[in-house]
Design a protein around this nucleic acid. Structure first.
Lengths: 223, 223
DNA sequence: CTATGATAGTATACTTTTGCTACTTTGTCA
DNA sequence: TGACAAAGTAGCAAAAGTATACTATCATAG
């Protein structure tokens, strides 16, 4: 039997299949806290509960594309920093049927977001992670996202995804402190990120204290 | 409409669904190299090529259970250190049909493995990761596993999963060196892992040099 | 037009970890 | 009993991380 013969005889409908969704946790830092975009469900199951934005994976799209689609439909944003988190496959996680969920997390600066409308809202991520009142296993997904972010802050540049293109060092430091959940020393923080940033000749103004210089992220050097 | 009415009307077959598999990369350190268990495929597609052990996810099992099943069927081992890696969902990754693959990696000490038979064999992981001759996207899965292991070696205890219950420090150090791809200083290495191990009163013997003390891993302390 | 409060930004001392070299110990074997 | 071989230990210098004290510059009040 040749490969093409084999392929033409293969009947994929011979086996039962689970449904596959992509659920996305969009994080931002707002009001001095890490917050996550949640949707209040209008339909069953879990009607009235909070859930993450999600879509069924189309037959012709990649998982990354499905995640981008879910995020775009709720925020209108493209080209967000997005990364796959974990895949959840317990047979009981959805009461309708067997659904396997590939979860993603995404990071955006608060400034690039329009205030969410109607069934969508931002919630403190820590509260969602600790709550027992969240639809499906989405509380665990958020918890998983928080943990992943916290782990990656120190050895990657994900924190820059949460500030605008131009930012001040006190702003950036605040992001780090919120993600890590601890206070950092100003001087040490600056030493550490000095090599990752480029100063501009812009300064903040208006505040009744010394203005803060603005910086940009240095483009990643080739490997 | 109540929730139970809603559920009874829900027709999950209304939507096309991808198939879902679990593919597992079983790593061990053998002959001074990180090696991975591969299967030479007997059937189409990719007949004759190397692939990772994989199974279709059953409708009543979790993903972790499917991974354990795949590993058990090839090695006869249960309770292996196993962790989910990444989920691969490109529509073209399987020529038969749309298949989404949830990949796992697993770590076992060489001593606990029977020599693999027939279509199964161990291959140097770096070669698999670099080869263009591997079935599906399994080469990338192995590459992803190597990277994950390398990242986790320094801030977790996964290296201990690759040695027997009792081990010598030169053995353990060799594991670290192979995973990290670099030589370590004996004294520094010992200082660092001193807190994670418990000495036994056993020693190696037979070699024509000073015997090496054997240790066990200290049970993880409560969080 | 100067004092003050508030935050931006810098200099520096101290502590811990890492990188490295040299040494001592203890077994087997000739 | 001396030589080799790898196990195991001691210690120093450089680098990185931790912590504190200081100076700079704006807006506003008086």
């Amino acid at each position: 039997m040749t490969e093409s013969e084999f392929l033409s005889r293969y009947r994929s409908s011979d086996y039962p299949k689970p449904s596959v969704t992509v659920d996305t946790a969009l994080f931002t830092v707002r009001e001095d806290a890490l917050q996550v975009l949640m949707i209040r469900r209008q339909e069953h199951p879990f009607q009235g509960k909070l859930s993450l934005p999600g879509v069924f994976v189309g037959m012709e799209e990649t998982l990354d594309e499905a995640a981008a689609r879910a995020l775009y439909s709720k925020t209108g944003l493209r080209d967000i920093y997005t990364e796959q988190l974990y895949t959840w496959g317990s047979p009981e996680r959805d009461p309708r049927m067997r659904v396997i969920s590939v979860s993603y997390y995404a990071l955006v600066p608060e400034q690039s977001l329009a205030p969410p409308e109607e069934p969508a809202l931002f919630c403190p991520a820590a509260e969602i992670a600790a709550s027992g009142e969240i639809a499906f296993d989405h509380s665990r997904i958020v918890a998983c996202g928080i943990e992943r972010i916290r782990n990656k802050v120190n050895y990657t540049d994900i924190a820059f995804s949460l500030v605008d293109e131009e930012f001040t060092l006190p702003e950036l430091q605040r992001i780090y402190e919120i993600l890590l959940g601890q206070k950092l020393y100003k001087a040490n923080f600056r030493k550490k990120i000095a090599e990752k940033i480029i100063p501009t000749d812009h300064y903040t103004s208006g505040a009744r204290h010394r203005p803060s210089r603005m910086y940009r992220k240095k483009p990643a050097t080739a490997e």
